[in-house]
């Protein structure tokens, strides 16, 4: 197992290196004159020359890459052109908020997706299964930004049950411990703020979870249908095991491999969806930070956010692979 873990960890390194190269090419080489883009259409030639020199863009490409690479591996993402803060600081403030949102959405998606997928498979070809499959189809086809807007309309405006802007009501103060408002409020014993933060999280988390719920339900149903037809489950029933044990212990465990894979893949969908969700609900996470950075042509921030998101995604996939190996004894560790 240890050899497998080490091998898999080592494999993540070239992928992350590739990510760094891709971001460098994407933001430094392809657009042509980066200084021109940053300075804007009305900048004079002298201003562009000065900016080119300040950004080091007049140096050979490999020198630029090496400077960029050494900075990134030391955790220096440069300075925001918009706020003049270190990029790491801006990301450090925004990332926990995105993390809170994605964790909430992931939990909703996993629990609801697996439960409904198992139920649809167990009651296959009944009206319940048909209903679940219609909902899955709608969930997969519905754009996340429309889901968010509809939820705001339904539960924020027409039936005002939940707040739909930002992460806390204006004026509510929470001690900064982890940067995640709910956790910080709980850790500091501020229960009213915790309730307020949970209320603010409901609509964004449901919005972000809609697509993964549908996808996980579909995959779980399909994996369970395949497993439920296996001979060893017939044997399990024949020896008198209760149906609940057959489904939840024997069948689900054997159907867990494709489900775990899908859960891992959905983390990428959640990180992508977070950008849209944060924009809809005015949540100051990394998605909104990135959109503002693009609009301001704040390349260091764009670069920092993309590298962070890709690194998180690579690490999650690494964890999924390790979990996969743990769940499936047929995978050889050497």
């Amino acid at each position: 197992m240890l050899t497998y873990v080490v091998q898999r960890l080592l494999w993540a390194i070239p992928v992350l290196l590739g990510v760094l190269i891709a971001v460098f090419i994407g933001l430094h080489v392809v657009p042509g004159n980066v200084a021109q883009s940053i300075a804007g259409a009305h900048a004079t030639a002298a201003q562009i020359r000065l900016l080119t020199h300040q950004l080091g863009l007049d140096k050979p490409l490999w020198v630029q890459f090496w400077a960029y690479f050494t900075q990134i591996v030391q955790g220096h993402f440069g300075t925001s052109l918009q706020y003049h803060n270190p990029v790491a600081q801006d990301i450090g403030q925004a990332f926990p908020i995105t993390l809170q949102l994605t964790i909430a959405a992931f939990l909703i998606a996993s629990v609801v997706g697996i439960l409904s997928g198992v139920a649809a498979a167990v009651y296959r070809n009944t009206w319940f299964d048909s209903l679940i499959m219609v909902l899955v189809l709608i969930g997969i086809s519905m754009p996340i930004f429309w889901t968010g807007v509809m939820l705001i309309l339904a539960f924020g405006v027409d039936l005002p049950l939940f707040p739909f802007s930002s992460v806390l009501t204006a004026g509510t103060v929470v001690a900064h411990i982890t940067g995640m408002p709910i956790l910080d409020a709980i850790l500091s014993g501020n229960w009213s703020a915790a309730g307020d933060a949970v209320g603010h999280l409901v609509l964004p988390a449901i919005t972000l979870a809609t697509y993964p719920v549908a996808f996980i339900t579909r995959m779980t149903r399909s994996a369970m249908i395949e497993v439920l037809s296996q001979d060893y489950l017939r044997t399990a029933r024949a020896k008198g095991l209760r149906e609940r044990v057959v489904v939840w212990k024997h069948a689900l465990r054997n159907a867990s491999l494709p489900i775990v894979t899908v859960l891992g893949v959905q983390v990428g969908a959640l990180l992508s969806g977070a950008v849209l969700t944060e924009t809809i609900f005015s949540i100051p996470g990394i998605g909104r930070l990135m959109i503002q950075a693009i609009l301001f042509r704040d390349y260091p921030v764009v670069q920092g956010v993309v590298i962070l998101a890709a690194s998180v995604f690579v690490l999650v996939n690494l964890l999924v692979d390790l979990l996969y190996a743990r769940l499936d004894p047929r995978i050889h560790y050497s």
Partner: peptide, 25 residues
């Protein structure tokens, strides 16, 4: 295939946004 792995290491919308950031909206 290693290039494909690298492409797939990005959450897709963030990769798309990075490309739009480079090319302009």
């Amino acid at each position: 295939m290693r290039v494909a792995d690298i492409f797939m290491a990005f959450p897709f919308l963030l990769l798309a946004l990075m490309i739009v950031a480079a090319l302009g909206p």
